[in-house]
């Protein structure tokens, strides 16, 4: 077995009296795609915040490639290889789409000049945003903002990409392209942690799936086995929705 790229051990996080993460552990191998599902408010996004360093946990450790990064900031972790997309997009609104990606390519990889521009452009190509490269990011529609989140995460030259609900709002025809993009990352040795309510998209790519509820790991393992778990069905999927749930979902 290969050494894990990401290793989260016993992570806890509270906001005041609300416990949002409680003893969460997971590990992701290089090039592996790891899925996370769970009901709203389960703490999925908070887990990504702890992994990429936007929040520091109250307990537990985060290791990247064996190094303890629990105390390092988000910028350092990005430079070390963690790219992140946000569920609620956070574009640099006053900058163009290309400039958004250029920031990620310049500071995520340390590239300069032509190399940075090339990295940014490739990320825009992958995300399908080259047509709006010169558009101010603040003027984008929600769907393009989500694409920009993906582009920025990829432009940082990651070894691990954290994706937070990027399929919500995509049309049925667009989902396979996104799935292909994520598979492509795996082929290039980039690991992915993907939170998604569009479960069938997730199942198409991930090798392991985790279900989080109330900040605790309810189940983790082979995707179909996790989705068939009666507890998971009860808290998350409900009794009627299976893996063929509607593709187009409203995003909160």
């Amino acid at each position: 077995m290969t050494a894990p790229l990401l290793e989260v051990t016993g992570v806890g996080k509270r906001f005041g009296r609300l416990t949002v993460l409680d003893d969460v552990s997971l590990s992701v191998a290089p090039g592996e795609a790891f899925g996370i599902v769970g009901p709203n408010g389960a703490g999925k996004s908070t887990l990504l915040n702890v992994v990429n360093g936007v929040l520091s946990p109250d307990a537990g450790t985060v290791r990247l490639d064996g190094a303890d990064v629990t105390r390092s900031g988000a910028a350092a972790r990005c430079r070390a290889g963690i790219g992140r997309s946000y569920q609620v997009p956070r574009p640099f609104g006053g900058m163009t789409v290309f400039e958004n990606a250029l920031v990620a390519a310049s500071f995520g990889t340390g590239a300069r000049g032509r190399a940075a521009a090339e990295g940014a452009w490739r990320a825009l190509e992958t995300a399908g945003l080259t047509g709006v490269a010169d558009t101010p990011a603040g003027a984008l529609r929600l769907l393009d903002r989500k694409r920009l989140e993906l582009a920025r995460a990829l432009a940082t030259g990651p070894r691990l990409v954290l994706l937070d609900e990027i399929a919500g709002g995509l049309t049925e025809a667009e989902v396979p392209a996104l799935v292909e993009t994520v598979r492509d990352l795996g082929r290039q040795g980039v690991a992915v942690v993907w939170i998604e309510h569009v479960v069938h998209a997730l199942v198409a790519v991930v090798t392991r799936l985790m279900c989080l509820t109330y900040g605790r790991v309810l189940a983790v393992g082979e995707p179909r086995a996790v989705l068939a778990d009666p507890q998971v069905v009860e808290v998350y999927l409900g009794s009627t929705i299976g893996t063929d749930d509607p593709v187009v979902e409203g995003t909160p």
Binding site: A74, A75, P91, F92, G108, T156
Partner: peptide, 25 residues
């Protein structure tokens, strides 16, 4: 300059900037 690119990103969203590798502080 490169620093200017970082500052413009910080102006728009410091959290997103740090997540993209910008050393905000």
């Amino acid at each position: 300059s490169r620093l200017g690119l970082a500052l413009t990103a910080i102006r728009d969203d410091p959290t997103a900037a740090s997540s993209a590798g910008v050393r905000v502080t």
